[in-house]
């Protein structure tokens, strides 16, 4: 499968982070929260109004907005 951005990852699907974009404080936040390349993530769900999303990584749940999730590319795992 081709690499996609995190906002496009299907719910329940696992993936590995390839690159982390964004700049300034956003990027810093991503990295500090453990969204670093090679990390495994899984999209848990979308909020009832469609945005933000909840993801699972490094043993905890994190929420982020779709616009921000666009800045992270991931490689989905083959199912």
């Amino acid at each position: 499968m081709d690499a996609i951005t995190l906002n496009n990852l299907a719910i329940g699907q696992k993936a590995t982070i390839i690159t982390v974009g964004g700049e300034g404080i956003l990027r810093r936040r991503f990295l500090d929260m453990g969204l670093t390349p090679k990390t495994k993530v899984m999209v848990r769900k979308r909020a009832p109004l469609g945005d933000p999303i909840e993801i699972f990584l490094r043993g905890y749940e994190l929420t982020l907005r779709l616009d921000d999730a666009k800045k992270i590319t991931v490689q989905p795992e083959e199912v």
């Binding site: 300034g24 956003l26 936040r29 909840e54 749940e61 994190l62 929420t63 982020l64 907005r65 921000d68």
Partner: peptide
């Protein structure tokens, strides 16, 4: 730049 909404649940 606002503090991003990247928050632990």
């Amino acid at each position: 730049q606002p503090v991003p909404f990247v928050m632990e649940l």
